[in-house]
Design a protein around this nucleic acid. Sequence first.
RNA 1: GCUCAUAUAGCUCAGCGGUAGAGCACUUGCUUGGUAAGUAAGAGGUCACCGGUUCAAGUCCGGUUAUGAGCUCCA
Length: 643
Amino acid sequence: MNITLPDGSVRDLKPGSTGQDLANDIGPGLAKAAIAVSVNGIQKDLSDPINEDSEVSIITLDSEDGLEIMRHTLTAQVLARAVQNLYPGTKLAIGPTIKDGFYYDFEFKKPISPDDLERIEKEMAKIINSKSSITKKLYSKKDAIAVFKSKKETYKELIIEESDQSDDFQLYYQDDNEFVDLCRGPHLPSLKHIGSFKLTKLAGAYWKGDSKNKMLTRIYGTAWKNDKDLNAYLHSLEEAEKRDHRKLGKEMSLFHFQEEAPGMVFWHPNGWTIYRLLEDFIREKLSDYGYQEIRTPQVVDRKLWEASGHWDKYRENMFITEIDEEHANEKRTNALKPMNCPCHVQVYNQGLKSYRDLPLRFAEFGSCHRYEASGTMHGLMRVRGFTQDDGHIFCTEEQIESETKLFIELLSNIYKDLGFDSFDIKLSTRPEVRVGSDEVWDKAEQALESAIKKLDLPYTLEEGDGAFYGPKLDFVLTDAIGREWQCGTFQADFNLPERLEAEYVGEDGKKHIPVMIHRAVLGSFERFIGVLIENYSGKLPFWLAPVQVVVASITSDVDDYAEKVALALEEKGIRCSLDLRNEKISYKVREHSSTKTPVIMALGKREQESNSVSVRRIGSNNNESISLEQALKDLSIENSKRH
RNA sequence: GCUCAUAUAGCUCAGCGGUAGAGCACUUGCUUGGUAAGUAAGAGGUCACCGGUUCAAGUCCGGUUAUGAGCUCCA
């Protein structure tokens, strides 16, 4: 049979030859490095026979695929075996690979602590040292279940039982031990191929990801080809930690949280400056795109929430308020608004609307409160009190597509100015439980999809992930350590307008129900600022920096000149602070650099005599001497460019 | 909400049964120094909160609250 290699060359091998035979045939170096093969795009064990003409590539640890196989073997064959050696009776659940590493879920008889990880690592090293070969056997469903039943591996049994496969269950063995694990493979042919690894953390995880199920213990780890790669990865994690907005928020004095108001931000002057600048920026953009800004109440009677359906479906997330009985002369229950939409419909409903009024775009920087589960809070990214750059578009079904297109343009435009050149779009389609006819869903899903396609943007489809009231687009940004955060959103809604009796008079003179589109670009100011800080590592662009320039005197003789320069900057609308402290200039430079001030102007006798300034930019070790006049001109221009 | 962990000075952390510690920051003195830490002294803590064990509790145990990492859920 003919085997075609990735470089196009063809080798003639006997049918039934294995990947290892092929590697041997190519050369001794590869024969040693080979860990698996890809046959016609499907990964196979090196020991699997190849029976017909195929395109085959040999996988080694030099490829991402190879690393993944190694991580897989490490978790399923080494970590799992080590844990069972040390803690007999521990049940195995699942152990997949993830980005840069792997995890394994166990049910321990007694809980273990993070200190145990070191012990497990040592046991793993011992197992790897045995350099055992790994072999696999195929079992029928019945036999496979019997194997795991005898070992009391209830989770494995369940996995096999629930599988629709009837035979060829792959069980992997090591040659020096009776350890066995079910696996779809492929695995390393031998433990000698394992590179460098480290167990990183211990956490709970629900069986099958369902919070109704039992919580298992998950051990996370990372693995690389060698120590060098492992250390580089660990170092990159440390670097990412330095960008954490919670850390930078403290260092730059942007905001804080405290026990009395969990999940609610205390904005400091510096942080609030960023917030306001961002709000002004968005306000201008919205106005350019035909939105009218409104403002609606924070505390609203439960009657409205009952009408909107929130009281039924969302109450566990709402802060409910009651008026002190002693003082209230009316008894009513209110809720802090968790969303702005019902209030926006109230504004829409004032006065009769004609089809000529549509699309009608309302915007509100709406302050919302949601009682989030305690474990979900995360710095600015997930809070209980936040402000959305919310907006609702009332339009006809026919207008959905053009509104989608217009919105994505607005969003891309804003994201680009704020330093995000790329973002992920997720299109979520109809869920099983939903309102509205299939025809309307068809139309809405098509409208959303066709708008993204016309803009030639990549997107991923999340089938069945839409809201019960309509399909949606989510716009996702990534934080310093790779966690994804949904920021922008665009959701068509066929439900709420009807519930809250929104109408318009159509061309036909009859009343119709408009479609309502919920949309936000930033999502929430809080989250977006968190992502923004991490994306810039705190080094915000000039226009967004809370303090744009620090004017620092080198000796006290030039304090007067420094004051003059600061005043001139302020007159140009530049936010500056004056540092006349009795400290050396290098001390001042260090301090202002660490708080990420974009520009430091160090002023000494030379500058005073020539009416100039020395400009030092954040991130640069150089400084440039220019005339004060030129500096004022340059910085004013820079300040007016908002990107 | 669940699992595990953590909570000591403004910040970062050490101390883990026997009179509260360090570095930085802060205040004051000396120093006027040219681009990432000049120098000396001083001040600063009900060791998150509530209870228990003990002659004695930051230190051991239990609970509460908050925070962190995951899981679940979401902007």
